[in-house]
Amino acid sequence: MRIKDTYENTIVIQKSIFITRIFRVDSISMVEEKLAEIRKKHYDAKHNCYAYILGDNQEIQKASDDGEPQKTAGAPMLDVLKKNNMTNILAIVTRYFGGILLGAGGLVRAYSSSVSECLKLATLYDTKLQTKFSLITSYQGYNTLLKVIPYITLEDTSFTDQVLITGSLDIDKYELFKEDLYKYKINGDTLTKLGDFQVEVPIEE
């Protein structure tokens, strides 16, 4: 799952202030840019801990405790992202120390809950595969297509002596589409598959 926007949340635990931001990132350079931005903004903070995941299969993962005891900040933040099946995401938690030591267990809970609470604010998106196609048909075939095949998206239509259609549909409906073109006599012989691509769709709660 992915996010598209930036979200921010603040919690206070034992007088320490934890400011969490989650960003949509698509490259390591974007990660570095956001980290530099937050470090500059919160130059006076005790810690700017982070975790990020990149790639369709979550193949790039990294976390940093930024001075907190080992595995008490970045690792639990990363665990939250992984448990929520997130990718292309960067979480940064800025901590202003409140003078009270939280202990290892307290830090793990603080950093993990900070990211969890921030994720609750986010609109989440999942990816699905679609196929782009072109089709040449008659005006009658075009009108029939509009009436009986609701699961395609028309992207471009050119009208001459025939109708040239470019559109897309979910990849798992492509075979059904071919069958329907012949079933409704919409000149299925001219159907051309132009390629597959990913789209992001919001997850309904």
Rank of each mutant, 00 (worst) to 15 (best):
I60V: 14
E33N: 11
G188E: 10
L129A: 08
D66S: 10
L181R: 10
Y96Q: 04
G105R: 11
E175H: 02
Y142P: 02
N143F: 06
L101N: 14
T144W: 00
L107M: 12
S16L: 10
M77D: 07
D170I: 04
Y184E: 13
Y43G: 00
Y174V: 08
I60Q: 08
L181A: 09
I28Q: 13
G67S: 11
Y151Q: 03
V25G: 04
G55P: 04
C118N: 06
E68S: 13
H42V: 07
L135F: 09
Q140C: 00
H47C: 11
L81S: 05
E33I: 01
K147N: 12
L54K: 12
D26C: 13
Y50Q: 04
M77N: 07
K83Y: 09
L119E: 05
D196W: 01
M86S: 08
K173L: 10
Y43R: 08
I22N: 02
K41Q: 14
S116K: 15
T94Y: 07
G188I: 12
L78D: 06
D44V: 02
A104G: 15
D156R: 14
I152W: 00
S138R: 10
A36Y: 05
Y142C: 06
D170Y: 09
T192F: 05
G67I: 13
Y139M: 08
I149G: 02
K147T: 10
L145G: 05
L107P: 04
D189M: 06
S114P: 04
A63R: 00
G99Y: 03
L164S: 14
G106L: 07
Y174P: 00
